[in-house]
């Protein structure tokens, strides 16, 4: 049975994560471009026509400053709020920043945010997501996790 490579891989990942943590906390001056694809919140056959739309958000990090620009179209009702949340992929979490959003069914999203060191680390770990709320879907209509842009 040859199984050692995954154990080794996990060890390497653990060391890398630890080094990343140490590095991130002590030296947060990082840069990079990130992207979130906005797509409908979880739907069912009953809600598929009332939770709609799509969009794209580009996020640019300089040091701890995150510039957010994006657009969206096709929501079922006018947007009311947009937020950055903290949660690993596909796992909802709390709001950590507010975003400016056009109060229509389509429009723009923008903000310039100062992230904490922990939030910068969350950004690099794909643990931030953007959520747009609307009049008919107060819990949220569009959502998208933030990943490094290829």
């Amino acid at each position: 049975m040859k199984l050692g490579h995954k154990t080794f891989s996990k060890l390497v990942t653990s060391i890398a994560c630890t080094l990343t943590l140490v590095f991130s906390v002590n030296a947060v001056a990082q840069s990079g471009t990130f992207r979130a694809r906005l797509s409908p919140m979880p739907t069912t056959p009953q809600t598929v026509t009332t939770i709609t739309g799509e969009g794209e958000v580009i996020l640019t990090l300089e040091g701890n400053t995150l510039k957010v620009t994006g657009d969206f179209v096709g929501m079922n009702s006018a947007a009311t709020m947009a937020h950055v949340h903290n949660g690993p992929p596909a796992q909802p979490g709390p709001v950590v920043h507010q975003l400016e959003v056009t109060k229509m069914t389509g429009g723009e999203i923008s903000a310039v945010l100062e992230l904490t060191d922990e939030q910068v680390m969350a950004l690099h770990n794909n643990e931030l997501y953007i959520q747009v709320h609307s009049e008919t879907n107060p819990p949220g209509e569009l959502r998208g996790w933030v990943f490094a842009r290829n």
Binding site: R37, S39, P42, T43, T44, P89, N126, W145
Partner: peptide
């Protein structure tokens, strides 16, 4: 009860 959504990181 189930609801469905795109898998994060797959670009749809």
């Amino acid at each position: 009860s189930r609801k469905f959504f795109e898998m994060p990181g797959t670009d749809g």
